[in-house]
């Protein structure tokens, strides 16, 4: 491709035509847009995810608002009203002590969802920090941190949480959060590490280093924002797991103390009478399933929305 004058002039024409086209193209796309706006558009076009989002919000609304408007005392024992099936005055019926389940399910939801969110936030913070440091620094530190994680992974989830609770000696909202966090932050850390390692190899990280960016800028400005999509998806994937874990512990009688209740302990109250009074166990179970399913569908929709490559497939 040693160019002679004739080719040169031919190429010159090609070049000038190309740059004109380029200018045209450069001026054309003027619609202001961002990654997040595009993601929002894709999310709202996904019917399943949208329905799940609405269901999720309805649940939150029910849990938050009900205790303000229902005229009963959640802990008032009234044996004359025990085991009522759902009626207009008691939409979810009452339990063996005559307590209103519409109200108690909402209060239980506050505790279940509250523990769920608090533990999820804690899991994210710990998991992201641990994973990001491990992946970003690499080398022997990464190796060591991952082997520790492997060892923790080997411990079964529930016994781990139970032992943590036992160490605390008391069970309340915050010890529950800690126990569930301690037992379930590994996956987030590991996924985060993988993500950082992948992102670290990106050309834009190399480019950032080539302009003299320091490590903190690379980590916080170039790497972590690129994991945000994954983090959001992970919030909605972790939340159901934690809620389920809490329900499980409560169902085993390791949950928060009566007369307070979470969905798990409400279900436990009902399981002895599941034949004669099925509504007592069905209602909190449906609530748990409702929350978990909607969270999963939201996670799914978010994953599609935040990853443009899957556009059209959804």
């Amino acid at each position: 491709m040693v160019l002679n004058p004739q080719e040169e002039s031919l190429r010159e024409t090609v070049v000038s035509r190309e740059s004109e086209e380029l200018r045209f193209e450069a001026g054309a796309a003027l619609r202001q847009s961002s990654l997040w706006r595009d993601a929002l558009r894709r999310f709202t076009h996904n019917r399943g995810a949208l329905i799940a989002m609405v269901a999720f919000l309805i649940m939150l609304l029910y849990v938050v608002v009900t205790p303000w408007i229902v005229p009963y005392d959640p802990n008032n024992v009234d044996f004359s009203a025990s085991y009522l099936t759902p009626t207009w005055s008691h939409p979810f019926g009452t339990d063996q002590f005559g307590r209103d389940l519409f109200l108690r399910t909402a209060l239980g939801g506050r505790i279940s969802i509250g523990i769920g969110f608090a533990a999820t936030v804690a899991i994210m913070v710990i998991g992201i920090l641990y994973g990001a440091i491990s992946g970003f620094v690499g080398g022997w530190l990464d190796n060591g941190m991952m082997r520790i994680l492997d060892a923790l992974y080997g411990l079964p989830y529930l016994p781990f949480a139970i032992i943590t609770l036992a160490i605390f000696g008391t069970v309340n909202f915050w010890t529950m959060v800690v126990a569930l966090t301690v037992a379930s932050w590994f996956t987030t850390a590991r996924v985060m590490r993988g993500q950082i390692i992948t992102l670290k190899e990106n050309d834009y990280v190399r480019s950032a280093r080539a302009i003299g960016a320091r490590w903190n800028r690379i980590l916080f400005r170039h790497l972590l924002p690129n994991t945000l999509g994954l983090v959001i998806v992970f919030v909605f994937l972790e939340l159901p797991g934690v809620v389920l874990g809490e329900a499980f512990l409560s169902f085993l009688g390791l949950g928060i103390n009566p007369p307070n209740a979470s969905w798990g302990s409400l279900a436990q109250d009902g399981y002895t009478q599941y034949l004669s009074h099925p509504h007592i166990i069905v209602i909190p179970s449906v609530a748990i399933a409702w929350l978990i399913l909607s969270a999963f569908f939201i996670a799914d929709g978010l994953r599609d929305a935040l990853d443009p490559r899957t556009e059209g497939a959804a």
Binding site: L35, D203, Y204, R209, G212, A213, H222, P225, L228
Partner: peptide, 19 residues
């Protein structure tokens, strides 16, 4: 780097941070 010596790389599609 970036101040005295600057460098541009092969693949412009991946050299910019998408976020």
């Amino acid at each position: 780097r970036g101040r005295q010596i600057a460098m541009i790389f092969q693949d412009p599609m991946t050299s910019l941070n998408p976020t």
